[in-house]
Computed example of a mutant assay.
Amino acid sequence: MSNRTLMVTASLGVMSLMALTACGTDKSDDPKASGGSASATAEAFKGLTGDQISEKARVAMTKLDSFRVKGSMTTDGKHMTFDFAVAKRGACQGTFGTESASAEIRQVGGAAYMKGDEKFWREMGSEDGSSSEDTEALIEMLKGRWFKMPAQDAKADDKFPFCDIGTMFEKDEKEGHLTRKADTDVNGTPAVTLKGKDGAATQTLLVAAEGEPYALRLTAEGGKEPGSFDFSAFNKPVTVTAPPAGEVMDPEKLKG
């Protein structure tokens, strides 16, 4: 049951990997040509293509000690929301959920912890094909408690991507292309707009034009997994603590 939940979480990180990549060049990436103006924002990346700006953002994100990512997306036909604080060395904490269920996540000290509400565990039991009796028994065991999954025992595909800055912003060598469009701002921060296609989806990446070129927002419209990511709280301290031992369920008790 936990593996399926982790895979759903992992799917949230996939979109952030696709646009934050620099491939090819484009001589038409002049902000004037795409509707922008000769402003301080335009001067921030003067002479650079959209792909080159995107690569600067990707590298800047990998150098962060911490950040916050918040947003929503639709995956496997379900609308999901998420809000995570991320630190280096695999530590993170946050929440994600559907319209009717939610769960908390913490990863620290080489272990991952998950605490879902009753509806969350019931949905997971239904998706896994568990009997109603087994599902209700699980809900009773986990009521108000955290499920612990040792990170070292987890398969690579089951780990939380939000807890690894390097994984989230790993360079993607697949061919892609982003074109610079009109300048804008995100919550008052001047930003450049980069757009590109990924299959049926139109992706938009907004990059800070002042200070470090951090990714501020990434959206995907159309396609199979539309959604939006907002990045903030760059390098603000993140402290993640393991849940109290008395509130953690021993995974050995769930075997069988």
Rank of each mutant, 00 (worst) to 15 (best):
E127F: 07
G110A: 09
E123R: 09
L142F: 10
G109D: 13
G110P: 00
D117A: 06
G110C: 07
K115W: 08
F147C: 06
K119T: 14
L142Y: 00
E123C: 04
G144Q: 05
M141I: 10
G109Y: 01
W146C: 04
A111V: 13
K119Y: 01
M149S: 14
L138R: 15
G116L: 06
S131M: 11
G116S: 05
L138V: 04
G125L: 01
V108Q: 03
E118P: 05
M149G: 13
L142S: 04
E127R: 15
K119A: 15
W146G: 07
G110K: 11
E136R: 05
A151H: 01
E140G: 03
V108D: 13
L142Q: 08
E136A: 12
M141L: 15
K119W: 09
D134L: 10
R145E: 08
D134K: 14
L138C: 03
D128Y: 07
I139R: 12
L142C: 05
L142K: 02
L138G: 07
G109P: 06
S132K: 15
G110Q: 05
F120E: 01
I139H: 11
A137V: 00
R145K: 15
D134E: 12
M149W: 05
F120W: 14
G109S: 06
A151M: 11
S132H: 04
D134Y: 03
V108K: 01
M114A: 15
A151N: 05
E123H: 02
W146E: 04
K148G: 02
S126W: 04
K148R: 13
S131H: 01
D134N: 12
G109T: 00
T135M: 04
F120R: 00
F120K: 00
G125A: 08
M124Q: 11
Y113M: 06
S126P: 04
A151K: 07
K119M: 09
E127P: 00
A151D: 12
E123D: 15
G125W: 02
A137G: 15
G116P: 07
E136C: 04
S131R: 09
